[in-house]
Design a protein around this nucleic acid. Structure first.
Length: 573
DNA sequence: GCCGTTTTCGGCCCGACTGTTTTCAGTCG
């Protein structure tokens, strides 16, 4: 079986955790964690490095030793060190790392003194009270442990961006209304537009922290208090979302925002860079010797390090600091650059609004065009269009377009790719359309080879324009089906096709890693909402976030172009 | 275990909060 990057990353993560229990050099542990991130975030499969000429040691955080371990894993399916660690320590210890408040030291103590080797034994011993006898473990620790185990079991999930917004909006509004509060901003992975968010980080700029803390810890939707301090508190909301809040004064606003936005890896790298210039960054500011150099804005801190401002979506320590140093940061695509939405649904299939309603809603967003890509009849569950119905829909679109002089609806369809790579509508139907999108909605379980072949065959049809939601993933629900994405990207490039970043917060498919790879090879992407109602057209912002995380500029996104540009320069049908 | 506007050796971000302690280790972000 070919080894995937995610498996290599997981193995490194396990090695890091097990090494930590053995009390290994913490920097060695960190090296494995860093490598796990590098590997997980790499756009091409590392097994290609092993087979080809590229050097694994060119990757950041991968030296001779870790390069050898990757090679070993790719060739044998195993890593000797991990096997050895697992033979010395029960692998059941690994799941204990997921419990909040339990780290390597405590896990080791539980294992050494009480032979705790799994979640189950831990739960049993917590029940009997034996754990409270251990040095350093009091009754409060046991209570928290039990609480956090329950929470972990209930909530082995992350939240979608739209869910987070629903939780955050009323809380942020309430904080903004407090006396003495100047600014409230959501930081953390939400601000970086990560595809899912584990907890919510809120930063407040206020003259006095106390009343803010009081309001926060008394918030009506709170079900549990995790921590309460003078300037920092954490609560759990109904639904299980943890919210961390920090209050700072305006002088420290920028440094606190930078620190609280992360990523952790970006901050570590940035502070390392500061250290080499004899400067120090903390959440209160940037300093040299005893002099304060700044900290009121994020820009000020970057400037003090001779760097341009780095957008939150890029702060992952995936090359953005180097790019910033060399003045090579991309000018990222923005919501206002978008000229139209290329994947939406109407009452013609499973959408909630009519063609006219969708068109008017798109016009109000300032778009020049909207493609209504109703499903083909093959997908029976959506009540899709057959050839006759599609024709009638085309006539309706013509009439509607006659009534607009600043906007047009595009005749289109979301055509199914059949298991053999043929399409669910005939070519003579497809050639009547302005735009042909194709997608997989069945047989998700084909092998990587068969699924890749299926898609490539579809892309080679000269009438096809866009492959939508290319990997089929549903965040937290369904994994992406296995694909040789590199082959698909290359084929799309050769065939003048485009791949979509689906902006639905449940999908965000393509992911940022693949999006960045597409840009690297010069393949343009579309960002479309897959809206099934007028309201969902506003989901575009989630797709933009994902695109920005993939380093995409305006020119890398097809639907930043006017319709005339699109037809004359990019679409072949 | 990685890495080099201090370096092939000696560093590796930094502070808040908790719980169990009497001054701090562990964990988290």
């Amino acid at each position: 079986m070919p080894v995937h990057n995610s498996e290599i990353a997981e193995a490194f993560e396990q090695i890091a955790n097990l090494l930590e229990i053995t009390g290994a050099n913490p920097f060695r542990v960190r090296a494995y964690r860093n490598a796990a991130r590098t590997v997980a975030g790499h756009p091409t499969e590392l097994r290609r490095f092993v087979a080809g000429d590229d050097e694994l040691t060119d990757l950041p955080g991968i030296g001779d030793d870790l390069s050898d371990k990757i090679t070993e894993f790719v060739k044998t399916g195993k890593i000797g060190l991990l096997e050895q660690l697992k033979s010395e320590l029960p692998p059941g210890l690994l799941e204990l790392f997921k419990i909040e408040g339990l780290g390597p030291k405590k896990i080791k103590k539980l294992y050494d003194e009480l032979a705790v080797d799994s979640l189950e034994t831990l739960e049993n011993l917590a029940e009997t009270g034996e754990i409270a006898d251990l040095e350093g473990f009091g009754p409060k620790t046991v209570e928290n442990l039990q609480k956090n185990i329950r929470r972990m079991k209930r909530l082995d999930q992350r939240f979608l961006l739209n869910e987070i917004e629903q939780y955050a909006a009323p809380l942020v509004e309430q904080l903004r209304g407090l006396d003495g509060v100047d600014r409230v901003k959501i930081a953390g992975s939400f601000r970086r537009r990560q595809q899912t968010v584990g907890d919510l980080d809120i930063l407040v700029n206020a003259s006095k922290a106390e009343p803010v803390m009081e309001a926060f810890t008394g918030y009506e939707d709170m079900v549990d208090l995790v921590a309460v301090g003078d300037t920092k508190s954490s609560i759990i909301l109904r639904g299980g979302l943890q919210v961390d809040l920090r209050v700072v004064d305006s002088q420290s606003w920028g440094s606190a925002l930078l620190y609280f936005t992360g990523s952790k890896e970006h901050n570590v790298a940035l502070r390392g860079m500061a250290g080499r210039q004899n400067k120090k960054i903390n959440e209160y500011g940037i300093y040299q010797d005893d002099n304060r150099l700044g900290g009121a804005t994020e820009k000020e801190i970057y400037q003090q390090l001779d760097l341009p401002y780095i957008e939150p979506e890029l702060r992952e320590n995936r090359g953005e600091l180097e790019a910033a140093r060399n003045d090579l940061l991309p000018e990222l695509v923005e919501l206002s650059d978008i000229k139209g939405d290329l994947q939406t649904h109407s009452t013609g299939s499973d959408g909630k609004n009519t063609l006219r309603e969708m068109g008017e809603a798109a016009r109000e967003l300032g778009y020049q065009y909207l493609a209504v890509t109703d499903h083909s009849a093959y997908l029976a569950v959506t009540g899709g269009l057959d050839e006759e119905a599609l024709k009638r829909q085309g006539e309706k679109i013509d009439k509607l377009n006659d009534g607009w002089d600043d906007f047009r609806l595009l005749k289109s369809a979301e055509v199914d790719i059949l298991p053999d790579g043929n399409l669910s509508l005939d070519d003579q139907v497809l050639c009547q359309l302005d735009l042909v999108s194709v997608a997989i909605h069945s047989r998700f379980n084909l092998s990587e080879e068969a699924q890749t072949k299926r898609i490539i065959r579809a892309l080679k049809n000269p009438l096809v324009d866009i492959l939508v939601h290319p990997t089929g993933r549903l965040l937290g629900i369904r994994e992406a089906y296995p694909l040789d994405m590199e082959k698909i990207l290359q084929t799309a490039l050769e065939e003048n096709c485009f791949l979509e970043i689906n902006a639905s917060p449940m999908r965000l498919d393509l992911d940022e890693i693949t999006a960045r790879r597409a840009r690297e090879i010069g393949l343009k992407l579309t960002i479309s909402t897959d809206a099934h109602s007028c309201q969902e057209l506003a989901n575009m912002r989630y797709g933009i976030g994902q695109a920005r995380r993939g380093w995409l500029r305006k020119q890398d996104v097809l639907n930043t172009r006017s319709w005339s540009d699109l037809t004359t320069k990019y679409l072949n049908s």
